[in-house]
Design a binder for these strands. Structure first.
Lengths: 206, 206
DNA sequence: ACCTGAACACCGTTCAAGT
DNA sequence: ACCTGAACACCGTTCAAGT
């Protein structure tokens, strides 16, 4: 993909992400994006490597928006800050989550949060294999949590649907599932995210 | 979806999963599945609620294959057994992972592993909100790890591609990423999965 | 009640022609 | 070097007609 002229990569990212946010994943189409930008569909191919490249573009657009503050405190606090920043960015674009879970681009803006997370984790004294494991655990938790919030059996567009779906389950076979479903119905996702992360950080301290 | 006659749901699941395993996600098509079964495309609609229902069918097929043994030991050992069983099932069908991450059906066979995991976790003495958080953390870890193995910046079809992609990064901006990439190149995924899970279990013990 | 072919409104992408 | 329309080979799905 050579450097093109009619649009910038940022323009493409913004238009594509806007398409996903407003019309859902089904709205992300070569033709749709092209007309949004006022060109023919084939023009997009000058900026992006086919459909897959288009999806990577959106995923990168989301991840590059992750923000956090350098706390200067202990490594665990810093890890929590970065993790929450990444999660928050993902959460702001729910329709894009399947792309973020599935495609992963390797441009600098996308990798920056990962590197920051690694650096913070390395201040726990880990390196090599231990650092890799710690990293996989935390970043797995971030995307896993985002995905769970979106598509777990406990989540849906409306709480009514959840209650209804859970009520349809045979109560004798799924008692625990029903128990936590009622708890999940009115819980604060941010509090939950933090609490789960603290669990992992406690494990990292041990 | 009323009960149909020409095929069973299991036949549909097997054929659809086989399609995904052999041809990848792009091979999962109404028309493809139909000709595989020797019918017209429209017949599939008697068994499944559109394209989305077809994807749920595949996700359910994978998750229902999770197996584990009742250890009878402490709750942490049991949690680890179930978690590893779920991860192993997912891992056996790499092409289906995007569907598992994205679609979630609520039939009994799919929910059984989740309920088992909840029961094991409840033996740590947790219930209500604490149980919910523990569950989200562990199941987030499972799918997050599976996804990371498939699509992280550190993974690719061949190790050469990873090394090449990492080598393309500016070494001064991403030192830690480069460090763990070389470690990840020759590591045993199963050992890694277990080690990360132990991290979480340690946190659950605290 | 289930099955199914034809037809419709879309896709991504190749190709060839433009500047 | 970048742009772009026409054309091709696909999709999912509606509809109407079958049994």
């Amino acid at each position: 993909m050579p450097a093109p002229r009619k649009f910038t990569r940022e323009q493409l990212q913004a238009a594509a992400l806007n398409l996903v946010d407003t019309q859902g994943l089904a709205g992300l189409t070569m033709r749709n994006l092209a007309t949004e930008l006022g060109t023919g569909a084939m023009t997009i191919y000058n900026y992006v490597d086919g459909r897959e490249g288009l999806e990577e573009l959106v995923a990168a657009a989301v991840m590059s928006q992750a923000r956090w503050t350098e706390t200067g405190e202990d490594w665990a606090t810093q890890v929590a800050a970065i993790a929450e920043g990444m999660w928050w960015a993902v959460r702001a674009h729910p329709h894009a989550i399947p792309l973020i879970l599935t495609r992963r681009s390797s441009d600098a803006a996308t990798l920056a949060p990962a590197e920051a997370l690694l650096r913070a984790l390395s201040h726990s004294g880990r390196s090599g294999r231990d650092l890799l494991i710690a990293f996989r655990t935390v970043s797995g938790y971030i995307s896993g949590f985002a995905q769970a919030e979106l598509t777990s059996p406990l989540s849906a567009a409306t709480p009514e649907v959840v209650t209804e779906r859970i009520a349809a389950l045979p109560a004798d076979r799924f008692p625990k599932l029903i128990e936590i479903a009622t708890v999940a119905a009115d819980s604060d996702p941010r509090e939950e995210f933090r609490a789960g992360l603290q669990l992992i950080l406690a494990g990292l301290h041990a």
